[in-house]
């Protein structure tokens, strides 16, 4: 960018990328989270091609095989499920479906919810009211009930599942975004922009959105876990992802009946969900600070002290 290069000429500031890497290095939790998420992402991309055969191969002699049996092949190290299929391989293969559904639903609902929330908070009261009442309608329906009806009518596919989960989560972002916009639009710097003649679009996207965004990103990472579990509930009811396709949530519900004698069936996919959402949360927390010019020094200061 020409803008940043001229800035360098005036002040010897580090390149933005280098600066962000240094800030990431300063927060070790965020660093580990980022590495973990990159690993999960890579596994999700290559997993199905690599391990699909192993993951579906039944081995009835190895039913509910206990974990930590180091004498077997590595993909049996976390044990095997009720049909003797290796759990580790299944978790890796399931990562793709799980992340696709969760990320798709979260992205879709957050973008749609944020946009509608911005509009509801900033446009005429009447349009705002219409949007808010629509959100109320969605919220007053039990979300699982909508999902059941829609998926029953449309048939279950990954895309439909994403759509249904996204729609049920829209009001969360919508209401948060609207509440924040109502507060921020009265702030002085928004008034100052209006005095300069800034258009509503400019005020909304240049002045209000950057202030609202950190809250919504944090909300989205929290929602990630919720969506994964909602997806598993639908799969459990038989209208979500159907076997032989697998997701982490489906694995948890499949292992439920063996909880008393083979805990590992539900535990490992559960752990995968927890670690993924925890990493996302830590990373979003870091991102919130790194993107805020007023807070950024906390990270830069820490980096300076350690290295």
């Amino acid at each position: 960018m020409s803008l940043s290069s001229t800035e360098n000429a005036i002040l010897p500031e580090p390149h933005p990328a280098a600066r962000f890497l240094r800030m990431l290095w300063a927060d070790k939790f965020a660093l580990v989270s980022a590495l973990f998420l990159i690993m999960v992402l890579i596994l999700a991309i290559i997993g199905p091609h690599w391990l699909d055969d192993v993951a579906v191969k039944q081995n009835l002699r190895g039913r509910n095989l206990a974990p930590f049996d180091w004498s077997r092949d590595w993909f049996y190290w976390l044990g095997a499920d009720a049909l003797g299929r290796p759990l580790l391989a299944r978790i890796i293969v399931a990562a793709q479906n799980t992340l696709m559904v969760a990320a798709g639903a979260v992205l879709l609902s957050s973008i749609a919810g944020t946009f509608l929330g911005l509009v509801a908070g900033f446009s005429s009261p009447r349009l705002g009211q219409v949007i808010m009442r629509l959100a109320d309608v969605i919220m007053s329906f039990p979300s699982l009930l909508i999902a059941v009806i829609v998926l029953y009518l449309l048939g279950s596919s990954v895309l439909n599942l994403i759509l249904v989960l996204a729609i049920t989560r829209i009001p969360v972002y919508l209401r948060t975004a609207r509440a924040e916009v109502l507060e921020i639009r009265e702030r002085m710097f928004v008034q100052a922009a209006r005095v300069m003649g800034a258009s509503s679009r400019r005020i909304l996207f240049r002045h209000i959105l950057p202030v609202v965004l950190p809250t919504l990103v944090t909300l989205a990472t929290l929602d990630f876990a919720y969506v994964m579990l909602a997806e598993s509930a639908l799969s459990f009811l038989g209208i979500g992802i159907q076997p032989p396709e697998i997701t982490w949530g489906l694995m948890i519900s499949q292992g439920r009946q063996y909880l008393t004698n083979a805990w590992w069936l539900s535990f490992w996919p559960g752990l995968a969900i927890i670690l993924t959402t925890l990493s996302l949360n830590l990373l979003s927390n870091w991102l919130r600070i790194a993107l805020d010019p007023v807070q950024r020094w906390r990270l830069e200061m820490k980096g300076g002290r350690h290295g």
């Binding site: 702030r187 002085m188 710097f189 008034q191 100052a192 922009a193 005095v195 002045h207 950057p210 202030v211 805020d292 010019p293 007023v294």
Partner: peptide, 13 residues
């Protein structure tokens, strides 16, 4: 216009 409180009238980001 120049506002009363410059802390609030300048976008912090």
């Amino acid at each position: 216009m120049v506002f009363q409180d410059p802390t609030q009238s300048l976008n912090p980001r």
